[in-house]
Simulated assay, not measured.
Amino acid sequence: MKIVLNLFFALLFVQSCFGVEAPTSSAAPVSHDLFNSLLKKYVSDKGVVNYGGFKKDQKELKKYLDVISANAPGSSWSENEKLAYWINAYNAFTIQLILDNSENDLKSIKDIGDKIKIPFVNTPWDVKFINIGGKKMDLNNIEHGIIRKQFKEPRIHFALVCAAKSCPPLRNEAFTAERLNEQLNNQAEKFINDTSKNKISKSSASISKIFDWYGMDFKPTSIIDILNKYSKTKLDSKAKISYATYDWSLNGSF
């Protein structure tokens, strides 16, 4: 009974932290061209972010975030239009969070939780600095309360970027509904074949903690089958799997 009660309260805690009803509107699907232009200017092909460039161009980033804030997905939007919107929103607001705290000599996004003192906020992903459709939310709400809950799409873990070196590379173009499947597949290939994040041989693999943290999102497909779908080096079915230490250093510089 004690175990059941503990699980019950754990679920309540998770829901209270991440549970949020996705805001909706009657707006037409938004253009991500503004964000696309900024990504092309300030993100390298390998996902290294020029935060100094974004800082100088903050007015343009704010214009895009204002569009995102004022135009939550509508019921008439396709699933791809909604998912592209939320992925771009997460990545763009993450960049803004880094810029908002750049005066703190930021070396890692995790420094934000240590250096800013906001009651009841434990991590940078709990900071409610986002307003979409009149709802205040944080990055956890977007990732866990909306994207993971609504879309059941494991490839989002290769597209959402939390500003750390061990994260997937930030794509230097915005996600769009028209190309979303192609873009997600490409992100999976780039991430899984990046030897700084995943070291794969025939008999063993040292892989990103993302596969450990979000293993349930990939089921019923096994991790080996997921890796073999995208990896240039194919693993044996009984290959030994271990998880690499996650590098939380900032994925770029000022």
Rank of each mutant, 00 (worst) to 15 (best):
K56A: 12
V14H: 04
I3S: 12
S242I: 10
Q183G: 05
N91R: 02
W213I: 14
L61Q: 08
P154C: 09
K55F: 07
A28E: 12
P169E: 06
A72M: 01
L180Y: 02
D212G: 11
K128F: 00
L5R: 06
E153M: 08
L11P: 07
I156V: 15
E60T: 15
V161P: 07
V127G: 00
R155A: 15
N50F: 00
I241F: 08
L39S: 08
S237A: 15
Y214M: 09
N91M: 05
P23N: 01
S166G: 14
N36W: 05
F175L: 03
K110E: 03
F9T: 15
K128D: 04
D194N: 15
D236R: 08
S253D: 11
N141C: 03
V48W: 10
I118W: 02
L7A: 12
K135W: 01
D212K: 13
L12W: 01
F18N: 14
I142E: 00
K234V: 13
L184R: 03
K63R: 12
K219W: 02
I156Y: 05
Q150W: 00
K190T: 14
F254V: 08
A72Y: 01
F18L: 04
V43R: 05
M216I: 12
W125S: 09
I112R: 00
N198C: 12
H144L: 07
N50K: 03
K56N: 15
F93D: 02
D247P: 14
K41T: 15
S31F: 04
A27F: 02
K238C: 02
Y243C: 13
S25T: 08
K232R: 13
K165E: 14
N50C: 04
K219Y: 07
I116Q: 02
D225H: 07
L99V: 10
S253M: 06
N36E: 10
